[in-house]
């Protein structure tokens, strides 16, 4: 067979949120927030393990979270957590075949029924909820 050029999109195309609408943006945000939360959990285990170094070690690490950067980071974690949870519930309903739309005859111009208003509203609501939670978190943290 003739030699062929591998033309896969790769990670860059997989991670690109452009071109395919809000559903692809939600897919990308879900992956990103999942990875972010995983990194946070690893960091969190490291943080809590500092108790093994006694009170001084614990206080030292805790002080890092009380800085402006620490607050900003925690606000991002709150946002990721809320988006991942809310969008995750949507995805469970869709992937269980409950919110995925009803098959029927395809009529031009072929608007995909799986990308229905319910799904779009759920995606936008997840983003708004995450933003509200972040703002609330920042208000609490900086109001301390």
């Amino acid at each position: 067979m003739a030699r062929e050029e591998d033309n896969r999109g790769g990670i860059r195309d997989m991670a690109s949120p452009r071109r395919y609408g809000i559903e692809r943006v939600a897919y990308w945000m879900m992956r990103l927030s999942g990875l972010g939360l995983l990194a946070y959990f690893v960091g969190h285990i490291y943080e809590t393990s500092s108790i093994l170094r006694g009170r001084a070690g614990w206080d030292e690490l805790l002080a890092m979270t009380q800085t402006t950067e620490g607050h900003a980071l925690l606000a991002v974690v709150i946002g990721m957590c809320v988006f991942h949870t809310a969008n995750g519930i949507r995805l469970m309903l869709v992937q269980g075949g409950i919110w995925s739309g009803r098959p029927g005859r395809a009529d031009y111009p072929y608007t995909p029924r799986s990308q229905n208003a319910r799904n779009k509203i759920a995606i936008y609501s997840s983003i708004v909820l995450a933003a509200v939670a972040m703002v609330y978190g920042l208000t609490v943290m900086f109001g301390e």
Binding site: Y20, Y27, W28, Q115
Partner: peptide, 14 residues
């Protein structure tokens, strides 16, 4: 479920 397949399908297969 990125849904991009359905976005580009030219025959409404979804």
């Amino acid at each position: 479920y990125a849904g991009s397949c359905s976005k580009v399908c030219p025959k409404g297969v979804d």
